[in-house]
Amino acid sequence: MTSRSITDLQLAHLLADAARETILPYFRRSGQGLENKDLEGFDPVTAADRAAERAMRDLLRQHRPEDGIWGEEFGRIDGTSGRQWVLDPIDGTRAFISGTPTWGVLIALAADDGPPVLGLIDQPYTGERFTGGPDIAEMTGPLGRRPLATKPGRTLDQAILFTTFPEVGSPAERAGFDAVAQQVRLTRYGMDCYAYALLAAGHIDLVIEAGLNAYDIQAPIAVIEAAGGVVTDWQGRPAHGGGRVLAAANAGLHALALAILKQTPEDW
């Protein structure tokens, strides 16, 4: 197939298929090639992360050689088309090395430095895939093909809130998160990108995080917005560049949580 013989959506699925095939042989097995990228902390990377990103980059060079690529493991290369594929081969490497199935492959397509127009969250082990973009908001998996739709409006005291790390970020960011958490019915931790997929599928109401990179959030933004949700930073601005992120099932809940988070100092 030539570079333009498949659509962007078809290509996104090819990328996810390639990553899934590459990653699964490493999951819950020894010999993951674990390394630490942070000498002052713990930022794990495995052979599966790198192999999956290489596989996706190879497909992009074949089918969209004019597009840019921004991946977690091998950085950013500019294209000539004004478009960019944003890749996180394993979002949730800590979960991956722990054997929990809450990590995922993130794939997004955006205008250079702009918001995503297409996104895909794939969980290879469970076989679930969440896709959002123009005229598509759906999940596929063991239960078949289903439309994605976020929850309708509800008050904070009925909401379910997720984040990945209990510490969230800086002390001020943790305080901002806690202020929202004190208002909701249930708070849960540790789901990485799978929390955003659950929000898009209508199971939870809020995800609040800090310290994200663009490749952590661009695919979830596209999926959640296609499903009817809202994603911004903690000041209500676009979040596709990363940083502090508030994802909500609907505009009403977003406004309630945002009013609390806006009080968090921006210089932390």
Rank of each mutant, 00 (worst) to 15 (best):
155 T>F: 12
98 S>A: 14
68 G>Y: 05
173 E>D: 10
95 A>I: 10
139 M>V: 04
135 D>N: 08
176 G>Y: 06
88 D>T: 12
84 Q>A: 15
56 M>N: 01
106 L>M: 09
87 L>G: 08
104 G>A: 04
115 P>Q: 03
162 F>I: 09
78 D>V: 14
111 A>W: 11
101 P>L: 03
108 A>L: 05
120 L>V: 08
138 E>M: 00
69 I>P: 08
166 P>I: 05
136 I>W: 01
123 Q>A: 09
123 Q>C: 07
177 F>P: 11
98 S>W: 09
103 W>V: 03
64 R>E: 06
74 F>V: 10
71 G>L: 09
51 A>Y: 08
99 G>Q: 04
79 G>T: 09
93 T>R: 03
97 I>F: 00
166 P>K: 08
123 Q>D: 06
176 G>K: 03
58 D>C: 13
64 R>N: 07
168 V>Y: 05
164 T>E: 12
105 V>L: 00
132 G>L: 00
154 R>Q: 10
149 A>P: 11
127 G>Y: 00
63 H>V: 08
105 V>E: 02
134 P>E: 07
132 G>V: 01
118 L>H: 04
132 G>P: 01
58 D>A: 15
177 F>D: 03
160 I>Y: 13
167 E>P: 12
101 P>T: 07
70 W>A: 15
64 R>A: 05
111 A>M: 10
63 H>Y: 13
60 L>I: 09
110 A>M: 08
110 A>C: 12
62 Q>D: 13
64 R>I: 07
119 G>Q: 04
86 V>H: 10
69 I>V: 13
81 S>R: 10
109 L>Q: 07
105 V>F: 01
134 P>Q: 04
124 P>T: 00
177 F>T: 07
161 L>Q: 07
77 I>M: 15
124 P>D: 00
106 L>I: 09
90 I>V: 07
157 D>A: 11
165 F>M: 12
145 R>P: 10
55 A>R: 02
114 G>I: 05
129 R>T: 00
117 V>A: 12
160 I>D: 11
128 E>K: 08
68 G>L: 06
148 L>Q: 01
72 E>Q: 11
97 I>C: 06
147 P>N: 01
139 M>R: 04
175 A>Q: 14
104 G>H: 00
141 G>A: 09
160 I>S: 12
133 G>R: 00
120 L>D: 01
110 A>H: 07
164 T>K: 11
145 R>C: 08
150 T>H: 02
150 T>S: 05
93 T>D: 04
174 R>M: 11
142 P>Q: 05
76 R>Y: 12
82 G>I: 08
94 R>I: 13
84 Q>E: 15
81 S>L: 11
149 A>L: 09
78 D>S: 15
63 H>K: 10
113 D>G: 10
152 P>F: 03
176 G>P: 13
150 T>R: 00
119 G>M: 01
114 G>Y: 01
58 D>P: 13
66 E>H: 15
157 D>Q: 10
167 E>N: 14
166 P>G: 09
102 T>G: 14
171 P>H: 06
147 P>I: 04
55 A>Q: 03
172 A>T: 14
118 L>N: 02
88 D>R: 08
122 D>L: 03
130 F>Q: 00
103 W>T: 03
115 P>C: 02
113 D>E: 12
80 T>I: 15
104 G>C: 05
